[in-house]
Design a protein around this nucleic acid. Sequence first.
DNA 1: TTGTAGGCGTTATCAA
DNA 2: TTGATAACGCCTACAA
Lengths: 348, 348
Amino acid sequence: MKNQKRTTIYDIAKKLNLNASSVSRALSNNNNVSAATRELVLKTAAELNYKQNSLASNLRRGHNKTIGVIVPHINQNFFADVIAGLEEVTYQQGYNLIICQSNESYTREVESVNTLINQHVSCIIISVSADFEDDSHLRNILAQGIQLIQFDRVADNLETFKVVNDNERASMEAVSHLITQGYQRIALLEGPQNLNIFKQRKDGYIAALKKHNFEVLPELMIENAWTKELGAIATRKLLNMPMPPDAIFASTSDFSALGVLEVAHKMGVMVPEKLGICGYSNEAFTEITTPSITTIDQHSVDMGKTIANLFFQEMGSEKEVRPKIVNIQPKLIVRSSTLKNKLGRSVR
Amino acid sequence: MKNQKRTTIYDIAKKLNLNASSVSRALSNNNNVSAATRELVLKTAAELNYKQNSLASNLRRGHNKTIGVIVPHINQNFFADVIAGLEEVTYQQGYNLIICQSNESYTREVESVNTLINQHVSCIIISVSADFEDDSHLRNILAQGIQLIQFDRVADNLETFKVVNDNERASMEAVSHLITQGYQRIALLEGPQNLNIFKQRKDGYIAALKKHNFEVLPELMIENAWTKELGAIATRKLLNMPMPPDAIFASTSDFSALGVLEVAHKMGVMVPEKLGICGYSNEAFTEITTPSITTIDQHSVDMGKTIANLFFQEMGSEKEVRPKIVNIQPKLIVRSSTLKNKLGRSVR
DNA sequence: TTGTAGGCGTTATCAA
DNA sequence: TTGATAACGCCTACAA
């Protein structure tokens, strides 16, 4: 368990009466070494249980086969899935992932960026925190010659590679679906508006209402209702209004939608007959609630893969590449919680 | 975006007519430098946007403030939670986390171990894959002088630091609870028995039966039913037996329990009246199924914190420390799916 | 095909 | 308190 010395290429060289450079060449198989020495070196390396020191190798070569990832929370399904997708691809390419969570704190986000810069990672992949203040730390990444990909929650004013969901369109589709189902007064649960994704979802909601000539009613749009608890509180308030909504679009998350559902149950409001509910994210549980919840799938694992592929395929070249924005189309998953017409439709 | 040179301590030194070593001292604030030069150095470093090169620093100092983590899947709640807990503590200590997922493959696990050894991480934290073959790669970690902590799924024959759940006791408690509720024929859904955690859960099941003088019936113990789909198939088989069970303990996971519940619904078997169901893990959805599912909470985020604290508090010292095993007590969460007596009890 | 030498950026040791 | 120098382990021109 002690800090004993590890075997280096010098140890191998000494044992074989070779020079360290020959050993190095033999180990990095692309160079010119005689087959005999290569074999000898490999054999001895195995015997001495040699492991390369990546620190030295990376320092010498000036780059690190490592990618840094910063997310608000590692253990939220969406982010965990994206990371799993990322890991899948980066692993294939022999890259490692260093993971940081900002805990929705701007300070921690900045600190994490600095650590990753210090580590000389090849690329930083980030989804910004909820109390995002300004993008100077992100600009700094670029200034240090490190690649940058933003995903999901991105800084609008900074031109970098981005992989995002088409939040506005998905929202529009969800609200249009509600309207088609015959809901008349559709409320919106909003997330923090300093995050662009939540702004876009709100925009989609408004666009859908306008498209169908529905009035946009400020009293039906509840700010900052992005957890289960806040969703529940908002719902109680909404359902106690003189003219309550007959549908609620929890644009922030399925957790928020779950809060809506629980309050509806407690208040004896029938779902979907008297209240339609639509969530966002396609969390596993939306399939098994009673009724199951209509929601929007973000293809999170694929998103991770897309991000990684972007790096390996489009950002590797030395020439200046114009930042590209990849827009992933989320998918509306219609379930029971919004199927007001289901009885009518199933009868001939 | 180009690979321009980053500023080094030499750049700062040159600008200030100092020696690089003085700059180094000034930046690592513990050494003896005059207050004046320190201030000057810090100011210039900020001006030139200096970032330390951790690769060089770690190479020189011979250790890396980085911890490697290997789990079967990053995006499974239990592991994601453990990682979140780990990150929380390691971040406080200025350590980074490199994350690998083995995808339940032994080969990938071995490869990941090697990468982490190459990276000279200070510690490797691992939960082994389902097709775990032998522990030579783990022994290699120790042979390289790297700390090793196993958690949850551990190699029994290898003496290292370990943080585990008391699976056997939790299982015993769950089955005893079922018996107390009046269930008479309790089936077990098992996980792969080459993983110790699943063996322990089976042991707990058997121990509970014996303790209450119940017969242990092989036909009620279904091997390898550890996903939702396999759980469903097993349930169909069980419920179609001449003498079907009146309770099923899905010892592998809540997903498996979910499979049980869905089949029960489809076959019209009342839960909990005709069939009691108990899962394992306390996944978020167990609270909101109909009926809600009795399960076992593993304190996963705390487990991550415990692991990290073990490393920082007990493994830092230079002297040989005897590996310690921390046993975390899981908690039985009783919900509707096993409350056969609930009606009886709520009546006075 | 192999050996020599220098350097990646930092820190530790010694001397001044 | 500061400067000079070597070394961490590896890679890569260049020379032999």
